[in-house]
Write a protein that binds this DNA or RNA. Structure first.
Lengths: 171, 171
DNA sequence: CCCTTTGTTCAAAAAAGTTTGAACAATCGC
DNA sequence: GCGATTGTTCAAACTTTTTTGAACAAAGGG
């Protein structure tokens, strides 16, 4: 039965209106700062400003992105806890809605993007500290010890700051 | 007088030893998380683990990066407050040393990379709020008002969290 | 079963970001 | 001033990341 069904009256339902474009632009910039791809911002932005949950096909149609992008983008947003599947009626396709509590968004970002790097960083620094023990030159070893110690302090501070951050951003 | 002067005795002075390579690798990863280019990590890493200030040519020679990269990298690191020029003797060339206080590093990053984005984000959202006022449909306008309000709350929370972050990371 | 709808995967294309190096200042010592 | 040294700039080359789209799986309905 081809592609009817949406635009009956009510104008071309699948171009973004100016306000939606502005919102999407804000989120494109926003996720960029966090080092996430543009499509993530587009998808989350459109969900954020939509009154009703949207399906993958809605996103493809309205944002002019490929099905692949939409699928991968939704996957990432789900893993970040930034979108959830709307508890659908008897529908076949699944609809998505945004999580809009800052606490949740920050928590997901920290869990998925920050912690893993912190962990692997700490591991590398531990190996480093061992390597430094084996240096013969006493003065050099002392200097290295100081600097590596500082690195460890940095990592520890970063670790401590995360829960505080979450607390503050949870209102 | 060509390129003598460095390696008199004492081995091939300009390859990184294994420990230096490890440190540089840590910083390459570190700056990557912050969305900064690899060369920034290499340069800062080598300065961080060097007992003496290094010149641009030292960085080129030891890291095998181009003069252009080294120059641009140092510029960015200076703007971030992450390196300073060592108060040189009567030397012609300038030598650089790293800033190693976390407070300073975080401060510079926030000032140069975070604040500008926050500011421009707030500006965009203000314009957005105005656009939303002009919507005719009352229900839609109400919904938009709620969401945009939330966005404003997010921005405000982010702004408030920065000084706290700096305070905590300043020991 | 088979057709249709929905969604995923992944190699290749496109876009974005980084690095290079050669040309161009700037500055010092003579 | 002139030549040598030091550092900057920026278009082009290169690298990395993102997006695309066609092929493939999954699953419901008839």
């Amino acid at each position: 039965m081809m592609s009817c069904m949406t635009h009956l009256l009510d104008g071309d339902q699948h171009e973004l209106d100016p306000l939606e474009r502005q919102i999407v632009a804000v989120f494109i910039d926003g996720v960029r700062v966090l080092g996430l791809p543009r499509s993530i911002g587009e998808i989350y932005g459109l969900l954020f400003i939509s009154e009703v949950p949207l399906s993958l096909d809605d996103l493809v149609l309205r944002l002019h992105i490929s099905k692949g992008s939409a699928s991968q983008g939704l996957r990432m947003l789900k893993s970040l806890g930034a979108v959830r599947e709307a508890d659908g009626g008897a529908e076949r396709r699944t609809y998505y809605e945004p999580a809009i509590e800052l606490k949740r968004l920050v928590g997901g970002f920290i869990r998925e993007q920050v912690r893993p790097h912190l962990e692997s960083g700490k591991a590398k620094i531990n190996r480093l500290a061992e390597t430094a023990q084996e240096i013969d030159d006493t003065d050099r070893r002392k200097f290295l010890g100081e600097r590596i110690g500082r690195l460890e302090t940095w990592m520890s501070s970063s670790g401590k700051v995360l829960p505080i951050l979450q607390k503050i951003l949870g209102q």
